[in-house]
Design a protein around this nucleic acid. Structure first.
Lengths: 244, 244
DNA sequence: GCTTGACCTTGACGCAACGGCAGGGTTTCT
DNA sequence: AGAAACCCTGCCGTTGCGTCAAGGTCAAGC
């Protein structure tokens, strides 16, 4: 048989068979005088076995092991291992599908998926167009996505966002957008902000060391100079009090 | 933030982030004077979204689509599609695991997995050491692995293999291993073989055209000259009667 | 005899999503 | 001043083939 014939016979592509030769899964057969590969029925039997094993999900490497010598022993081992792997995959898929249906059920905003605690928190917050508040919401979603222990932070934040007077604080921060770095409103605003934060929150903020340092700089870069002063003082307080 | 910091923050590797830049999923950020990438909090938010979407199983291409413009619309579409895909995979995995347990339950021989009809057929066949019979068993497993309509062939073969007189035919074929191509025993053996084959079997053999031609030559090459004569006559009869 | 078409040959690139290494520069701590 | 821990670019490896590219071979029809 030529390669096209044996390929059609066992239900593979010629490319796949040549690939098997290339990787040493199947030895190259004799050649005809014109250079064509000449396949025997034995080859067809071997290829049929290869096809069945690959269809079962074995990698070519595993197929080689299984075909190699004591087929029964090795194959059983590989199969058990593979079955465990498939079980994991199945569980994975099921979990993902669960999250899919959760996502499809409630498309609240364009910000992407939120964890339930944060969704509850944001729903509680008063409506405001304050850019500073928008930034904070963004940072919270970031914590939500990355921080492992964001749950307790959100819980502590609950009473804070429910307080309508917080909106006024945001507006005072917004007002500093064009102000110079030595604006007299900076100090009192920083003091009022720190007063509004419940004491437990200082301890709940995670300390990642170097990561926090870089994050802080990046965060301050997003604010105007006067605003950065305020936010910077707040963060310094967090970092110092968190350690103490 | 430097790349290592943002990577730790959002839970990715630096390599992955650079990869996202490379494929255009995320634009390259500004650089510091020393050439280091300088990331903002916005980048962290974006990367966190990317991470969540990829963890849901979206490809980077799909993530780009989902992040691109109208996130809600596109994302829902992609998710539905992906969910269907996962459903397929889940079914696939379940089927494979079924076949695994079937394989592990009964390891009869080293010939690999057999379909139930063929297994029944071979169990029915009388024990014999005839090399010709061994060849036939091999060809049957080959049909089993490749032929889609092998079921009816096996059914028709049932009474044939159950007949103990068939063993004698195999032994007569074996006896021709060293015989010349003009041995006088060829013609009667071919006639007896054809007489033993039930009429319906001639029609049931699949006709694949060119594939059969190549297969026939390869099959004859496995027999000694006198045996090839016999087998060749039988196959010619199959091919002619199959058409008529 | 010539073309056409269907085969065959080797070889190399492409794919998805990065991991890992080489070879070199920067900052920082000690 | 040297070591540790960062950063940079760029290239190869992974899996299982698909898909050209650039030819050689063979049977059939004009």
């Amino acid at each position: 048989m030529r390669i096209g014939e044996i390929a059609a016979l066992v239900g593979l592509t010629t490319r796949a068979i040549r690939h098997y030769h290339h990787v040493g899964l199947l030895p190259e057969p004799e050649r005809r005088p014109n250079g064509y590969r000449a396949y025997s029925v034995r080859d067809a039997v071997l290829l049929a076995r290869v096809r069945r094993l690959t269809e079962l999900g074995l990698s070519l490497h595993e197929v080689r092991d299984a075909l190699a010598d004591d087929a029964g022993r090795e194959l059983a081992e590989v199969l058990v291992e593979l079955d465990a792997d498939l079980a994991r995959q199945e569980a994975d898929i099921r979990e993902r599908r669960c999250r899919f249906s959760a996502l499809l059920a409630e498309p609240p905003g364009a910000t992407g998926p939120l964890s339930p605690p944060l969704a509850a928190l944001l729903a509680q917050a008063p409506r405001t167009d304050s850019p500073s508040a928008a930034k904070d919401r963004e940072y919270l979603t970031l914590m939500d996505a990355t921080g492992s222990d964001s749950q307790e932070v959100f819980a502590l934040l609950g009473p804070l966002v429910a307080d309508p007077s917080v909106v006024e604080l945001y507006e005072r921060l917004d007002a500093l957008a064009e102000a110079p770095a030595d604006d007299p409103r900076i100090a009192p605003l920083a003091a009022d902000l720190m007063a509004a934060v419940p004491e437990e929150l200082f301890a709940a903020i995670p300390e990642d060391g170097a990561v926090v340092t870089g994050f802080k700089e990046a965060l301050l870069a997003e604010y105007a100079p006067a605003q950065a002063e305020v936010v910077g003082r707040l963060m310094d307080a967090f970092m110092e009090r968190g350690r103490g």
